[in-house]
């Protein structure tokens, strides 16, 4: 069975159409938008919380969006094992609602960083990267608040439970301060919950799915998720 994707639209989302376009037109999965004021997830198998600046990023990134009516349903869906992917602002919303641990603070440089980065795949025992063959992905980032922070105890938990999914690395796979675009703790670019059905990542896989754009590394993540439903 091919999965159905639901893309949640918050006021201020601006990567919702990119996600919809890549999933529906390029990868040809059934995809629907879901307005944040709704409560029904429209029988989606995978929920995408897209990038953008929900509620203008006021107070803290994702802080207000996490109280949108749809988020109650998303929370329950995730608790029941449903697959949720938070991209950029969507990741920040997952942190605020507590489906993933930690917080995002301003980039160390104080600059909004928009460029391609390299990511190492740190874990393959999960649906998001299971069917990806290559070890390093090239995916763009575009954020001002992508500096992942968490306390020591939580960070140990993340390591222990293999919840770290992607790290920022150089093109040859080195995770150091030079390859860290935002000051993220331990070069973390993406994590999962303990159960590994919820993923948050700062890079934008939906922006590199179309072969016409010269990079399809992002599509590998969505295809890996879809593969899980096909099996």
């Amino acid at each position: 069975m091919k999965p159905k994707f639901g893309v949640v639209v918050f006021p201020g989302s601006n990567c919702d159409h990119d996600a919809y376009y890549s999933l529906k037109k390029i990868l040809e999965y059934q995809t629907e938008f879901i307005w944040h004021k709704e409560k029904d997830l429209k029988r989606s198998d995978v929920i995408i919380l897209p990038g953008g600046f929900s509620y203008g990023d006021y107070l803290r990134t994702g802080a207000i969006a996490r109280f949108s009516p749809i988020m109650d349903s998303v929370y329950k869906f995730a608790e029941d094992g449903g697959v949720v992917i938070g991209i950029c602002n969507g990741f920040q919303i997952l942190l605020e609602i507590g489906l993933l641990p930690g917080v995002m603070i301003k980039n160390e440089s104080l600059k909004f960083v928009c460029k391609d980065v390299f990511l190492s795949i740190e874990n393959r025992e999960n649906i998001f990267t299971k069917s990806i063959k290559q070890n390093i992905l090239k995916i763009p980032i575009a954020h001002g608040d992508g500096n992942y922070f968490t306390d020591d105890a939580t960070s140990k938990e993340l390591e222990k439970n293999n919840q770290i999914l992607f790290r920022y690395v150089s093109s040859d796979g080195k995770a150091d301060s030079e390859s860290n675009p935002n000051g993220s703790f331990k070069n973390i670019a993406g994590i999962m919950n303990k159960r590994k059905n919820v993923m948050g990542l700062m890079p934008h896989p939906e922006r590199c799915c179309n072969p016409l754009l010269g990079n399809i590394d992002g599509s590998l993540i969505f295809r890996s998720v879809a593969q899980h439903f096909l099996n």
Partner: peptide, 8 residues
């Protein structure tokens, strides 16, 4: 619940 984030 909203104005602050207890993690930071």
């Amino acid at each position: 619940k909203l104005l602050s984030n207890p993690i930071m």
